[in-house]
Design a protein around this nucleic acid. Sequence first.
RNA 1: UGGGGCGUGGCCAAGCGGUAAGGCAGGGGACUUUGGAUCCCCUAUUCGCAGGUUCGAAUCCUGCCGCCCCAGCCA
Length: 566
Amino acid sequence: MNTETASTPERSDFVRDIVAADLREGRIDSVVTRFPPEPNGYLHIGHAKSICLNFGIAGEFGGRCHLRFDDTNPLKEEQEYIDSIQEDVRWLGFDWGQHLYFASDYFEQLYDWAVLLVRDGKAYVDDLSADEIRSHRGTLTEPGSNSRWRDRGVEENLDLFARMRAGEFPNGARVLRAKIDMASGNINLRDPIMYRIVHATHPRTADAWCIYPSYDFAHGQSDAIEGVTHSICTLEFQDHRPLYDWFTANLPVPSVPHQYEFARLNLTHTVLSKRVLLRLVNEGSVRGWDDPRMPTLTGLRRRGFPAEGLRDFVAMAGVARADSVIEVEMLEHAVRDILNRNAPRRFAVLDPVKVVIDNYPEGLTEEMEVPNNPEDPDAGTRTVPFTRELWIEREDFMEDPPSKFFRLAPGREVRLRSAYFITCTDFLKDDDGRIVELHCTYDPASRGGSTPDGRRPKATLHWLSASHTIPAEVRLYDHLFTSPHPSAGGRDIFEDLNPESEVILSGCLVEPSLVSVPIGETVQFERVGYFCPDPDSAPGVLVFNRTLGLRDTWAKLQAQGRHDGA
RNA sequence: UGGGGCGUGGCCAAGCGGUAAGGCAGGGGACUUUGGAUCCCCUAUUCGCAGGUUCGAAUCCUGCCGCCCCAGCCA
């Protein structure tokens, strides 16, 4: 490795700048952040950005990051999600230590604080219906008007709020509101709702409560209770910041956190809206939340994307306040970069065609030594059996090749990787004109892939011994949506679903060592791409997912040729 | 005609008054027992537009234009 001086600039962005300045100027002693998901769905790559930001900052500045579930709405939240979120954050590579919290842990404290605001005349029970509240709220350009219940007495408010908690009223009968300013230009300040009545079972507190705090009344105070210093969220909460600050300013909170907002992650050919992801699952467009085409962390994991690649991608993309849509190619680059360095190389033939080496002894099996990863000499070598009859990729032979085609063709010599040079002498076709068998001769002096005379074929092919082969199903994946911006333009994005987002190949063949690749490990099928075993694999029935293909300049050339030739 | 934000190359993104980093994508070349990887080189006389301040502006000021978010008893 080269000797880089300490001048290597740390990754920086506006949030890290703020944290660094707060530390440097003594406004805080150490940084505390939090990742605060609502357990109402699976985490996706957009959440990965927030997770990497919050945990990343805590790690870089020697602070800590909490995992806090924002479980204030029992109608939408489930234990299943609480479990999956923890699994996904851990998989991404982060550890919250002892700092696992739930907003519901603070329900009693939050209630006490609400009572305090009522006593101070800063909150009131409103009997208006949801519709009435909406019509009193005004519009974006017109101020709202006060509820007729806005000025009722403290004692009556106290009594009513207590009875709300006691379960005396049905859902929607009353709410508790902060008394701020119905004429504010910021609609969040027009007497926001602090508590609503919801008779529902909560995944953590069960039936202990029938009133639940709103996001606005819970979030900042939860941060304050935990000593969070920097409460980092996405841009759409900017308008909530004045309210966040209003509550911490009007309540005896133990600390005063501050909120900062960044732009959420968007990717081309991808949709991250929970609503749409749910539809994809419910309408059977994909097989589930963990379908390898889903942008969920569980889906990406099943697809074979390494967590490190995701982290690198997030770092590469940066954090800013401008709305943006990142090209998926950047993600794919980050993932390939990790995989290229780490993934063991293996042989697999997706679309096999038979090769017979006429001058190779019948019945002989040689064990050829093949490097596990040319990028990493420490990965060592493995042994792959070589015999007279082999399989190669159908697309690696052309009867009548164009000038740019370097692979096997009649009369042409190519190298079989780590084995021998072979020259095609003949080929057989079936009645439909389809190639069924190639005949070749080999050069015994080329064993291992080089010859004394230094001949260098233009192509090197992967291969498999016909008598040492494991059958496999291979699932090829591509973008779920055809358009780079599926949600743009107002049309139904389901019309933009890529019909070839999943292509299932049967009759594929892989080398014997592949029977034992553990789930979660991604390998490279040499010259083909990165693949990982799918959990659908069963003894005797291997299933591989294509994580990503290799960059393919030949395919690019062919595509160009098609265009030029038009 | 309300409030809050944002506008730097195809896509991200540094830059914080001293004369446009970096990555991805794209193009060209070298090398190569993966048409992979790697390595070189090329791609903004210009920072939404127009004025102004200044010796000097992407950075400061004014005006305009464009885009995003907000009217859940969701988060």
